[in-house]
Design a protein around this nucleic acid. Structure first.
Length: 573
RNA sequence: CGGGGUGUAGCGCAGUUUGGUAGCGCAUCUGGUUUGGGACCAGAGGGCCGCGGGUUCAAAUCCUGCCACCCCGACCA
């Protein structure tokens, strides 16, 4: 491709609405453009990268036995009514009506449609297992789109669905997809971890998430460097050793604590560490049917997912009480809540570790008062072994060493759905014994466009993007220093033709620009290899440099082809 | 959805406090000089100042309604 003709509108300045590095660089490199909040278009260079990501994912899916299809993005209300998600998916679903007032949505995901289709077409166990996938545009009307391609409202996703006769078959399909994902992500060239995911409200079924390690990512994961334990922060078991005081129990006392609300303020007021406090958090079910007071050690945070499992309310329906609601339940203000004197309908849930706190401190449910010398007794409460968000340094549940915490971007997930959809949509096949059984399903997603962003989040420097060779929009750029110098142009054109002949993906920068502009653009758009044709062409030499290294090495033209072959041979296929 | 901020040329911004004919840098076009890490000179084009209503002799500027975008929170692949 000739850069004199390439639609590559690079920007010198950072667009003011680009919030993370990947969005800034992709916009500046002329690879994407934003139309409205959370909706992006891909320009030639960006589209090439995305197609390469797609190709890698596609090859690995195919290699592991999945079959590609393309389902419609537009779906009728009826199939979503069957699963109950027309309502439950909530305002995130883009809904529309046709001229006859019939209702549709733009698919945010495709469990319903696949289940519906399979149920119509597939009737015998002999046709199972089955693994179908597609790569397609998905729509989710996110409440708050941000982070460029990472949380978009329109995005490209690979979604796959497996259908098996039983749990054993599902586990095989699941492990198979796990391997396919590892192969694909290894080839994409970013660092990632596979972590135990939230099994959500699906009744304890297994899921895993593939998290690209990115410093500003939205997902927090806990992992162990000494064994292979890894989980999202809300799910990871928190095991820590409490310091248990050996002092004798003292009599509980009410203490005036004017305007002292936060644990931090309490620590300095009482001159005690946070682990001596009993924090009381008020949480309710969204429909107001139940209210919980959750007791946890003062220096730790609550995991809503763990609470959700303990009380049997789906996590998305749990919410913290507002200050007004707290007043209603405790008769006091935010910051003074405690386990004593709550309204009768409040269920008190305790993390077991608060019973190790001797002569602790908790809110008194009276404005400006706390109790000290509190010693709670297990028998009085609904006790959970673990309600707490994991922290760095907690003990690994599998080997006991210290866990580390990292931020990341979820680029893939795999779910064991079981019969969740086949049951609600009554999708069955006939088993060996002639009886109708529900399909045992799995679903598997990869955020294709999100992967593009995740790679950039990991691969950049102060000059721009550094694409891994496997997904770079072009592999080589031939830079002509001065297009007025015939010898340079001739040599560059010959090199360009030769590389094209060899099947190398190559750009030639034949623009009548100064060298600096060309270097800056080449660095910004992140082309892995650059051949610079300049003055030393008179001696039959060109310069070769790698974007990762930067250093230019003079070499004869023949050598540069070898160097390129050598780099290309490193691509993992 | 709650709180905050911002909307002025393709991009980044000033001008708004104190109303008086819309500016700067980059980008674009023309001519020339240049040509190894975002050149220089001279000239040119480009604006419903987010949209609507109001106040005023006069509104980018003041008032008001709406919209969009961004941030923080809540929520979520």
């Amino acid at each position: 491709m000739r850069m004199s003709n390439l639609y590559m509108p690079t920007l010198r300045e950072v667009p003011n609405d680009a919030d993370i590095i990947s969005a800034q660089l992709l916009l500046r490199a002329g690879m994407i453009r934003k139309l409205v909040s959370g909706v992006y278009s891909f320009l030639p260079l960006g589209f090439r990268v995305m197609k390469k990501v797609e190709r890698i994912v596609r090859e690995e899916m195919d290699r592991y036995g999945a079959q590609e299809v393309l389902m419609s993005a537009i779906q009728p209300r009826e199939i979503w009514e069957e699963s109950g998600r027309w309502e439950n998916f909530g305002p995130e679903m883009f809904k529309l009506r046709d001229r006859h007032d019939r209702e549709f949505c733009l698919g945010p995901t495709h469990e319903e449609y696949f289940t519906f289709m399979i149920n119509n077409e597939l009737k015998s166990y002999k046709q199972l297992p089955l693994n179908l996938y597609q790569i397609q545009t998905k729509y989710r009307d996110e409440r708050r789109p941000r982070f460029g391609l990472v949380r978009a409202r329109e995005f490209i996703m690979k979604d796959a669905y497996t259908f098996d006769v039983d749990q054993e078959g599902l586990e095989k399909s699941y492990n198979n997809m796990w391997k396919a994902y590892e192969s694909a992500f290894d080839r994409l060239g970013f660092k990632y971890k596979v972590v135990l995911g939230d099994s959500g409200n699906m009744g304890g079924q297994i899921s895993h998430e593939f998290i690209a390690i990115t410093p500003n990512g939205e997902s927090t994961i806990a992992y162990c460097d000494h064994c292979d334990y890894a989980a999202t922060d809300e799910v990871a078991a928190s095991n820590f050793t409490q310091t248990i005081s050996d002092e004798a129990n003292s009599e509980m006392e009410k203490v005036l604590t004017v305007d002292i609300r936060t644990i931090e303020e309490l620590e300095s007021f009482f001159s005690m560490k946070g682990d001596r406090f009993i924090k009381t958090l008020l949480v309710k079910a969204e429909d107001d049917s139940r209210v919980f007071a959750v007791l946890i050690p003062g220096d730790r945070a609550l995991s809503l997912i763990k609470l959700s499992k303990h009380v049997g309310v789906p996590e998305e329906n749990l919410m913290m009480l507002t200050e007004d609601e707290i007043y209603g339940m405790t008769g006091s203000l935010l910051g003074f809540a405690g386990p004593f004197g709550l309204k009768e309908n409040v269920e008190i849930i305790a993390d077991r570790r608060i019973f190790n706190i001797k002569n602790g401190i908790c809110g008194a449910n009276i404005k400006d008062y706390h109790f000290k010398n509190v010693n709670l007794i297990e028998d009085d409460y609904s006790v959970s072994e673990d309600l707490i968000l994991v922290e760095a340094g907690d003990n690994c549940p599998s080997c006991g060493m210290a866990l580390a915490i990292d931020q990341g971007t979820e680029v893939g997930n795999i779910f064991q759905l079981g019969d969740k959809y086949s049951k609600s949509m009554n999708a069955t096949f006939l088993d060996k014994d002639g009886k109708a059984k529900h399909f045992i399903m799995g679903s598997y997603g990869i955020g294709i466009s999100r992967c593009v962003a995740a790679v950039v989040e990991q691969c950049f420097d102060d000059k721009g993007i550094i694409w891994p060779l496997a997904i770079a929009p072009y592999q080589v750029v031939v830079t002509i220093i001065n297009t007025k110098v015939e010898a340079q142009v001739d040599a560059a054109e010959k090199i360009y033709e030769e590389l094209l002949k060899k099947g190398v993906e190559v750009l030639i920068d034949d623009r009548n620009e100064r060298a600096g502009v060309k270097f800056t653009d080449a660095d910004l758009i992140g082309i892995p290899m650059r051949i610079t044709v300049g003055k030393v062409i008179d001696q039959g030499l060109v310069e070769f440099s790698l974007r990762t290294v930067g250093e230019k090495i003079e070499m004869p033209i023949i050598e540069v082809f070898k160097a390129i072959d050598n780099e290309l041979s490193k691509i993992n296929r």
